[in-house]
């Protein structure tokens, strides 16, 4: 089959690194791929508010509480503009939330792990947001305009989040033995799930083919994971945290670290619903969405009255 004229102009634009905008022609699968990816990204920001929100009322200083609250608020804001970016593709926020609740739409697996101690707040900021940034920096050049622009804004805030997470870890590593223990324990629990955030190895990645051709994706899972490891290992060493990987070593030839085997069986378990918090996270989101229904109805009824009285 020869490509049609409109497809050619779409692919030409992509090849010339021009952004695709909401009113431009785009292949249906491009649109669907983006809806899946952007809504997953938005849901991740929103579900991620739960493990971090778990520590707001127990934050150990007023400053720590202020930074954490502001950070979580940023995440909610990211969720908002990602939902808006996805809406330009012809899907409503309400539909996306329905898809989340039905299980059709996913969110990042990482938030199916629990935040057990205050050090987890450090680890989430440093490792989870750190891994997210690596991915998001490359998405600033993604081909869909509204998504790329949302990423530029998000990246600015995420680098602040990563610094606050690292600051928590650094402070705890300078603290009393109980704090150092807590920090290392959080490192041990979050390191591997953070590596899994980049998804399966390139050889096993099901969605990559068109994503590269359409320049939605710019770097492969393994490339991004490598970048994250190389950036993070020296940061851990600097504050005295051990990386929980006995096979981790510097590879002079590739000028990067080699790492041990990722536990893909665990990854598959968590993705298929058997992580420690999958049910809890979803039940929480459903519960508060349903509890808020009467408020949304009141808001809608009131707006309607105002419109009618104009």
């Amino acid at each position: 089959m020869f490509p049609t004229a409109t497809e050619t102009s779409f692919q030409e634009k992509v090849d010339q690194d021009l952004n695709i905008e909401p009113k431009d022609h785009m292949p249906e699968n491009y649109r669907l791929h983006l809806i899946r990816q952007i809504s997953q990204h938005a849901h991740s920001e929103v579900i991620g508010m739960q493990p971090e929100g778990n520590w707001i009322t127990r934050a150990p200083s007023l400053r720590a509480k202020q930074i954490l609250l502001a950070k979580i608020q940023d995440e909610g804001g990211h969720g908002l503009y990602l939902y808006s970016a996805a809406e330009t593709l012809g899907i409503s926020r309400e539909e996306m939330i329905e898809q989340l609740h039905s299980g059709k739409a996913k969110y990042s697996n990482i938030f199916n792990y629990p935040s057990l101690t205050w050090a987890d707040i450090g680890a989430i900021g440093w490792l989870v947001d750190g891994a997210a940034i690596v991915n998001q920096v490359s998405l600033q050049r993604t081909s869909y305009g509204p998504y790329a622009r949302a990423m530029v804004r998000i990246c600015k805030e995420e680098s602040f989040h990563q610094r606050q997470g690292y600051e928590i870890m650094a402070k705890m590593m300078k603290g009393i033995p109980a704090q150092r223990e807590m920090a290392q324990d959080a490192m041990n629990r979050w390191w591997w799930p953070a590596l899994m955030m980049f998804g399966p190895h390139d050889s096993d990645s099901p969605h990559s083919g068109n994503a590269f051709k359409w320049k939605i994706k710019r770097k492969s899972n393994d490339e991004l994971r490598q970048r994250f490891i190389d950036k993070t290992v020296p940061q851990a060493e600097l504050i005295g945290l051990a990386i929980p990987d006995k096979d981790l070593k510097w590879n002079e030839a590739k000028q990067g670290y080699d790492h041990g085997e990722i536990n893909w069986a665990e990854f598959k378990q968590v993705i298929s619903g058997n992580g420690p918090c999958n049910k809890q996270r979803m039940a929480h989101h459903v519960k508060y969405h349903e509890e808020g229904a009467w408020v949304r109805e009141a808001g809608a009824a009131y707006s309607k009255q105002i419109q009618e009285n104009k």
Binding site: V46, M49, Q50, G53, I56, T57, L62, K65, Q66, L69, A70, I72, Q73, G76, G77, G79, L80, Y83, H284, H285, Y288, E291, G292, A293, V295, R296
Partner: peptide
């Protein structure tokens, strides 16, 4: 701050935690 992740819509989640932040700064 207890409203975090519990608001009826995301916008209100943000508004209420924003007011929480104002109060915290004042405290």
């Amino acid at each position: 701050s207890e409203w975090c992740s519990r608001g009826p819509i995301l916008e209100e989640d943000l508004a209420l935690t924003n007011i929480a932040l104002d109060n915290l700064g004042r405290a």
